[in-house]
Design a protein around this nucleic acid. Structure first.
Lengths: 192, 192
DNA sequence: ACACACATGTAATTGGTTACATGATTTC
DNA sequence: GAAATCATGTAACCAATTACATGTGTGT
């Protein structure tokens, strides 16, 4: 079992939409799983070559073939099998690295106000993201709810929404907590 | 500004606890920020050498020097400055890659029951983690609440707790949703 | 004597990003 | 004709993990 995850995103995407080129695959990824998964061309194109060499995908051509200067691929039966195999294996937890939390943790060594600023930026990013996801969910229900994969997609979306809402609630509490004791030692504008 | 984050964790840790060796630094990392940050020796030792060469840390020796066969370091004024600089820069968002969500998204192509199993495993992991964090918080309040950095540490903990609770609520809803339509097409144990 | 934790490191590999290079096609 | 987007790729680099190698000190 490989650990190269790019291969499996590609297989998964091609299992849903056949006849896609590297360029299209990347767009599909962004539009469907973009909020929790990213891929760069530098990863996609070499992987496509390798998957084709291994017989897990094969060059193909959609009925209404649009442009000539692109190479479309589809998943092969072997590819389907490999995807299925991988899907059955428990997910490894993602490497634990959160730069925002790290900077917050070292807040005592930061210039005054910096941690508060980090949290406010975090809050704004999360608000924007939440709006995007909610809009996505609305649009999806309108346009794609008949797709067989829709229930799974909506679950991932709802997970994102839940995490963002929790993060936003925390942000408020965190800002309130920081305006209490710690910065007072430096700001100290009211005593005496 | 470097992008090597290992350097900054080390600087940050040494800013809090001086006179630590690579081995101790790693333990400190695990015990303090371990639930959202990890470092391996393969990363720590070379980075220590480099930081010393750059004058951001320096070999040092604690008053009660314990074992001889280890090299302790402390942060230098230059290192303090670098850390402070880095802390002021907005955190980049962590690379968006969640293998669990990816497998869930492709749930339609998975063997029946697999997605449910993934969610249940996820749920169990989160429950365990939540218990750990809550215990950590309890212990911390008992033993370390007088440390000046305590408020920041507790904030990161509370963030983790909030995310885990949201994930657990989602898990229940997700399992309920999956026991509705999608697996019925295959299981279909009750009609006819 | 043995096991375990302490302690430091290197080599190989990989997974991945970024920047660069190039050209075709569509649209205004 | 210019600009934007479509489209495919390569090279350089890097951060990081894993596995390996080696030795010391402590407790039983």
């Amino acid at each position: 079992m490989e650990r190269n995850q790019t291969a499996y995103v590609i297989l998964g995407i091609l299992a849903i939409h056949p006849h896609q080129s590297g360029y299209e695959i990347r767009k599909t990824i962004q539009q469907s799983v973009g909020f929790f998964w990213g891929e760069s061309y530098g990863q996609i194109y070499p992987t496509l070559k390798r998957l084709a060499a291994e017989g897990l995908i094969a060059p193909s051509r959609s009925a209404a073939a649009p442009r000539p200067n692109r190479q479309q691929y589809s998943i092969t039966p072997a590819g389907q099998a490999r995807l299925k195999e991988w899907l059955a294996v428990p997910a490894r937890d993602n490497p634990p690295r959160d730069e925002f939390l790290l900077k917050l943790f070292f807040g005592l060594d930061a210039p005054p106000g910096v941690s508060e600023a980090h949290i406010r930026r975090f809050q704004q990013n999360n608000r924007r993201m939440l709006a995007t996801l909610q809009e996505l969910e609305r649009l999806g229900r309108e346009r794609s709810s008949h797709y067989p994969g829709f229930p799974f997609w909506i679950l991932t979306l709802q997970y994102g929404v839940g995490q963002l809402k929790a993060a936003l609630e925390w942000s408020d509490a965190a800002l309130a907590a920081l305006s209490g004791s710690p910065s007072q030692q430096l700001t100290d504008g009211d005593a005496q």
